[in-house]
Design a protein around this nucleic acid. Sequence first.
RNA 1: CGGGGUAUAGCGUAGUCCGGUUAACGCGCCUGCUUUGGGAGCAGGAGAUCGGGAGUUCGAAUCUCUCUACCCCGACCA
Length: 488
Amino acid sequence: MSKKLPKREDGFSSWYTQVVNKAGLADYGPVKGTMVIKPYGFQIWENIKEIFDKMIKETGHVNAYFPLFIPKSFLAREAEHIEGFAKECAIVTHTKLKSDGDNGIIVDPDSKLEEELIVRPTSETIIWSMYKKWIQSYRDLPILINQWANVVRWEMRTRLFLRTSEFLWQEGHTAHATKEEAQKETLDILELYKSLAENYLAIPVITGIKTEAEKFAGAERTYCIEAMMGDKKALQAGTSHNLGQNFAKAFDVKYQTKDNKEELVWATSWGVSTRLIGAIILTHGDDKGLRLPPKIAPIQVVIIPIYKSDEQKSLVKQYLVEIITNLESLGIRIYQDWTDNTPGYKFNNWEMKGVPLRLEVGPRDVENNNIVLARRDIDGKLFLSKEVTIKKIPELLNEIQNNLFSQALEFRDSNTHQASNFDELKKVIKEGGFARCGWDGKASTETLIKEETKATIRCIPLDEKPENLKCVFTGTPAKHEVIFAKAY
RNA sequence: CGGGGUAUAGCGUAGUCCGGUUAACGCGCCUGCUUUGGGAGCAGGAGAUCGGGAGUUCGAAUCUCUCUACCCCGACCA
């Protein structure tokens, strides 16, 4: 592998793959479509997990764990649901292996399961089979359960983090007494997702609702957060579904009201996955590699000591003690690179890995009581006194966090255009970006546009203003304002 | 699942068309010395049953058959 990264404009796709590799985030697993999340990449996930876990607990949710295996028959209970997932399931059919008499092993035909098991592509069915047991009275509601788990979807085409056969996610599954409560939950979670994306991952997102064609299999309504990646394509970064009473009906989950009536339970489900890591790379990455928002960066400040001799090394080491002690006491995640690579190598390497702030200390700085700081989000170096540096680092991390968000927001906004007719829409899609326009609300129109432009309706934004719009395709009065874009 | 491609050291490749004896190169790795403020230099070294199997041949990385895996492009999808 060469040292240099290809420029993003010379092939965004291979740039992406190489960043994932060279930054040490992940590697291909031996089975097609699988991925090993390496420690550096996994720490990003752990940070995201920690942040979101806190958010959902603060809003009254609790964690639990449901089994990986789902009886095949469960999946078929909800018609749309099975249709959506039937073609991408991993199925367990046998439980034993045996020697083939030679050197190999074969599946033992005697161990065939009576009912095959599905490796969960999502957990609605198994969870609602349990909720049936747990819910009798209105007093049992609401149930606000989340689980952190892996799921398997046997996708045709996969890409590291963005679409892998197995991925990690959280899936929330809530049960409510009323339609209104379920709808509120769906939207509350959507807001949490927006906050996670914008305030922590520094990714600006549009909140909206999916069209019938794009909604989750088995949902009444699917809400989503949509983001624009560095190649101007859209990425669905999270979804929150109002499941209505679909799963309650499928699994016969009813509760008794205060006045002794029997009612079906209302449901929601929602999830974000390791795809978020892909979103971070694709949103913030540049030609030098990854750029990580400080709030989720495994290492927030990397310290590069510079020295020519053992004496200088120990001088630098001594000089650093105060800084390191201070940063550690502030809870800042630091890493000291004392390897014997050259400084130039280290600069490039840590830039590749996206560390937000680099602190360089060499003999010159020791002599002048200085520190050299380099921000990953902008070019140039800062030369500050030791005292100022210590005070300034938390502030700088904050600035970098905000700046990454602003840069991404500006990029998205400057690549979002209104389209008032089909030619304009085609132009926007061809050049890349989001096209906001009117839509007559018909699935047939949506399909025709998709066939001709390869762009899909990413969502009907919650802040839509369809009143004076005409459908971009048919010219008839628009039912909704929508965002068209090519998507991952 | 349709179309295309690839498989040679940890990684990236050359060699394959036109078969020939110690399989080459770059990066990385190990040792030593010199270096170190933007991807260090020199010297020495380790590492490959050329994806698996079968065949043709005096001889196969190279030709034939077959199997497998992965990548890219489509349809499908968080």
